[in-house]
Amino acid sequence: MFEAIAFYLFAFLTIAMFYIAVSTSQALYALSALAAGMIFISAFFFILGADFLGAVQIVVYSGAVMALYAFGMMFFDTTREVKEKQGNKAIIIGLSSLAALMVVVIVAAPIVGNNIEALYPMTEGAGNTQEVGMVLFTKYLVPFEVAAVMLLVAMIAGIVLAGKKMDLSLTLMSDSELMIMKEEDKKVNL
């Protein structure tokens, strides 16, 4: 009963938030709606008994990813709107529905075909975090390490890409210095 109420409530909230995130033209509204949607999604994980996944969802998405987007947005002029050229709406909606239907078929096909046997069944009397740890550090140890290396590579790439000229403060420089810097940039880019 409560599960059903919670499911429908959070389903409605998540869909509403993500709809706002894709339909609004303001980047700030989209960011806030997306952050709210991420938190609501973690509610599904808690309902489903995946406590650790829910906590990771909140920490990684609402904490790290949204903070990263917020910092990234400070580099841009978010008040200026990017012109959204409207294409053919029928084609877009048709393609999306088709792709979504394909996803359902792909997910449902093995379930309809034969009953799946649990590869790593849940252990009795262990909490979710404990189970996740036991499976992650035995069966999925190599993918775990590969993911760690990938995150390191991504971190270095982010620093290298975004960290250029971070030692210069654009607000403290005079206009003539800025002009000189811009022209140097143009020469380099040519």
């Binding site: 995946a50 990684v60 990813v65 990234g72 790593y120 996740v132 993911a147 991504a154």
Partner: peptide
């Protein structure tokens, strides 16, 4: 009753985090 799905979700989250880092760097 299978933990494999949750494991995949973890790796998807890791990939999403690194995608954001590289993507935002390129965007800047």
């Amino acid at each position: 009753g299978d933990l494999t799905g949750q494991m995949f979700a973890f790796f998807v989250i890791a990939i999403a985090a690194s995608e954001v880092a590289v993507g935002l760097g390129l965007l800047i």
